[in-house]
Simulated scan of single mutants.
Amino acid sequence: MISPQKFENSIGNQTIADFIREQVLRLTYTAVDMRPFAADMGYGGEPFVWDEDDRRHRLARLDALFFHLYGLDRNDADYILAQFPIVREQDEKQFGRYLTRDLILAYMNAVAAGDLETVVEVR
Rank of each mutant, 00 (worst) to 15 (best):
Y29E: 05
L65C: 09
L116D: 01
G96A: 04
Q83N: 02
F48L: 13
Q23Y: 00
V49T: 15
P4I: 02
D54Q: 12
P85D: 11
N9Q: 14
T15S: 15
S10G: 11
A82Y: 05
M108D: 00
E22W: 01
P36S: 01
A60Y: 00
A110C: 11
G12T: 06
M34T: 06
D91W: 12
A82G: 15
L103S: 05
V87S: 02
V111H: 02
N75T: 15
A112M: 06
V119P: 02
R74P: 02
L99M: 13
T28Y: 05
V120G: 05
I86K: 09
T15A: 10
Q94F: 05
T28C: 01
A38V: 09
I104G: 00
E46G: 11
Q5N: 14
Q14F: 10
D73T: 00
R56E: 15
K6C: 00
L65F: 03
E121W: 07
D73W: 11
G44Q: 13
M34L: 13
A17Q: 01
K93I: 08
R35F: 05
P36L: 03
Q90A: 02
G42A: 12
N9T: 11
A39K: 12
V32G: 04
M108K: 06
A82W: 14
L99K: 14
D73E: 14
R58A: 11
V122M: 07
H57A: 06
S10D: 10
A77P: 15
R56V: 03
L65Q: 04
E22L: 01
I20T: 07
A113K: 15
K6I: 00
R55M: 10
N13H: 14
R58S: 10
